[in-house]
């Protein structure tokens, strides 16, 4: 990894972190019409994996997908305006926090149904193969989805057909309120890859150099036609399942301990330690991104809502009976 790439990873993680914390504030201030599932503490996964992807590579993501959109190249303001349900959002307010798209940069959908994106990513990989390209597909999902049939059907199919798909399990320890210890009888979800005859690996999801390296291997394997990989990234969901979740199912001490393994602090210290950046470089970068996110928040806040009649565009149904 060269200097530029190392700093790029830090920049992506900072963008995601600051955007999410800003959204948390906007949620408290009533600027978001729904709840929101924030990605704080998991930034090293989206950043490390997507740094290996080209613009034409495609991803599916989850209800906790803001970070993946940014890491894949979406401007924060388009993401934040969508979360705020505005007409300037990436889906003009039709998708919202759980359903974001931008096919021009390969964001083929953050999917609100747990596991739902996995068969779709499998199909994106199938298309890449049928079309004779070396494009790859990445499916981000959680530990919860790994207990859903969609996971097992997808891995089996992708391995059978040697599809160029990377399945990235963000094991953040919780499926909504249920600890992975209460839902999953194995220590490492990556061992499930063995059952499908494919490669599987577990990495520290809070270390962006580890997620980057695992994804680099997997992407190379996919591009050369050697099939899918399951990457389990162990991390911790710092926030509740959604903003406003009282999270009584875990202790404050547990959360505090997780906070001390902050992925951004870790990577900052690596880059300071090896001389890639100076303290001043970090301060400058931090400031630049704070400004970017502040402007994005202002853009989202000041943008207008869609006009009500836009609801019926693209809705399907019987044209002659639609509006009475």
């Amino acid at each position: 990894m060269n200097r530029e790439m190392k700093i790029g990873l830090l920049e992506t993680m900072l963008k995601i972190r600051k955007a999410e914390l800003q959204l948390a504030v906007m949620f408290k201030n009533g600027k978001i019409p729904s709840g929101a599932h924030l990605y704080e503490g998991e930034e090293a996964i989206a950043a490390g994996v997507c740094a290996n992807l080209r613009t034409d590579d495609q991803i599916t993501s989850t209800h906790r997908g803001h970070g993946h959109c940014i890491a894949k190249g979406m401007e924060p303001r388009r993401m934040m305006a969508e979360v705020c349900a505005k007409s300037t959002g990436c889906c003009s307010g039709k998708g919202g926090t759980m359903h974001m798209f931008d096919p021009s940069i390969g964001v083929m959908g953050t999917i609100g149904i747990v596991g739902g994106g996995m068969p779709i990513a499998t199909g994106l990989g199938l298309a890449a193969k049928l079309q004779g390209t070396d494009r790859v597909a990445v499916s981000f999902f959680g530990d919860g989805a790994s207990n859903n049939g969609a996971f097992h059907e997808s891995l089996n199919m992708a391995s059978l057909w040697k599809l160029p798909v990377i399945y990235v399990c963000e094991n953040n320890q919780f499926a909504t309120s249920v600890s992975v210890k209460r839902s999953t009888p194995i220590e490492d979800i990556s061992v499930r890859a063995i059952g499908y005859g494919m490669s599987g690996v577990t990495v520290d999801g809070n270390k962006v150099d580890e997620t980057y390296a695992a994804a680099a291997d997997a992407v190379a394997r996919a591009r050369r036609g050697d099939g899918p990989t399951l990457i389990e990234c162990k991390t911790y969901r710092i926030r509740g399942h959604f903003e406003g979740d009282d999270a009584i199912y875990r202790s404050k001490e547990e959360v505090q301990a997780a906070r001390e393994r902050d992925p951004i602090e870790y990577w900052k210290n690596v880059l300071l330690g090896d001389g890639t950046i100076s303290e001043q470089d970090f301060i400058d970068l931090n400031e630049k991104i704070e400004q970017l996110i502040a402007q994005a928040a202002q853009f989202a806040d000041e943008s207008s809502y869609p006009t009500p009649e836009d609801a019926l565009k693209l809705c399907g149904g019987n044209p002659s009976l639609l509006v009475k």
């Binding site: 068969p119 779709i120 199909g123 990989g125 298309a127 597909a137 049939g149 059907e153």
Partner: peptide
């Protein structure tokens, strides 16, 4: 390749069709 037997995995069959369609195929 174009007449593809699948495992009995209805969710994956339908989902792979969705994904392939998103990427420009007509499954």
């Amino acid at each position: 390749d174009r007449c593809r037997d699948t495992p009995i995995s209805e969710q994956a069959i339908a989902g792979a069709a969705v994904g392939a369609a998103l990427a420009g195929m007509r499954p």
